[in-house]
Amino acid sequence: GLKFVIENGMLTMVGVDGYRLAIRKESIGYDGEDIEFVVPKKTIKEIIKLFNLEDDKKISMLISKRHIVFEIDNYSIISRLLDGEFIDYQAAIPKVSSTTILINTNDAIDCIERTLPVIENNQKNPIRCLFDGDQMRVSTVSSLGRVVDYTHANTSGDRVEIGFNSKFMLDALHASDTDEVKIELGGPVSPAVIKPINSDSFIFLVLPMRLKNEN
Rank of each mutant, 00 (worst) to 15 (best):
Glu120Tyr: 04
Asn121Gly: 12
Asn121Leu: 08
Asn122Gln: 09
Lys124Val: 11
Lys124Ala: 12
Asn125Phe: 07
Pro126Tyr: 07
Pro126Thr: 10
Pro126Ser: 14
Pro126Trp: 05
Ile127Ala: 08
Arg128Met: 04
Arg128Lys: 11
Cys129Ala: 15
Cys129Tyr: 07
Cys129Arg: 03
Leu130Met: 00
Leu130Asp: 00
Asp132Val: 01
Asp132Cys: 05
Gly133Ser: 09
Asp134Gly: 14
Asp134Ser: 11
Gln135Lys: 15
Met136Cys: 11
Met136Gln: 09
Met136Asn: 09
Met136Tyr: 09
Arg137Asn: 13
Arg137Phe: 12
Arg137Trp: 10
Arg137Glu: 14
Arg137Gly: 02
Arg137Tyr: 12
Val138Glu: 11
Ser139Gln: 06
Thr140Val: 10
Val141Tyr: 01
Val141Gly: 02
Val141Phe: 02
Ser142Gly: 02
Ser142Ala: 03
Ser143Asp: 13
Ser143Ala: 10
Ser143Met: 08
Leu144Trp: 07
Leu144Asn: 06
Gly145Trp: 12
Arg146Thr: 14
Val147Ala: 09
Val148Asp: 14
Asp149Gly: 08
Tyr150Ile: 02
Tyr150Asp: 09
His152Tyr: 12
His152Ser: 14
Ala153Ser: 09
Ala153Gln: 06
Asn154Ser: 11
Asn154Tyr: 08
Asn154Lys: 10
Thr155Lys: 03
Ser156Lys: 11
Gly157Val: 04
Asp158Met: 07
Arg159Val: 10
Glu161Asn: 02
Glu161Gln: 12
Glu161His: 01
Glu161Phe: 01
Ile162Phe: 07
Ile162Asp: 02
Gly163Val: 05
Gly163Pro: 03
Gly163Gln: 07
Asn165Leu: 08
Ser166Asn: 03
Ser166Pro: 09
Ser166Thr: 01
Lys167Ser: 15
Lys167Ala: 13
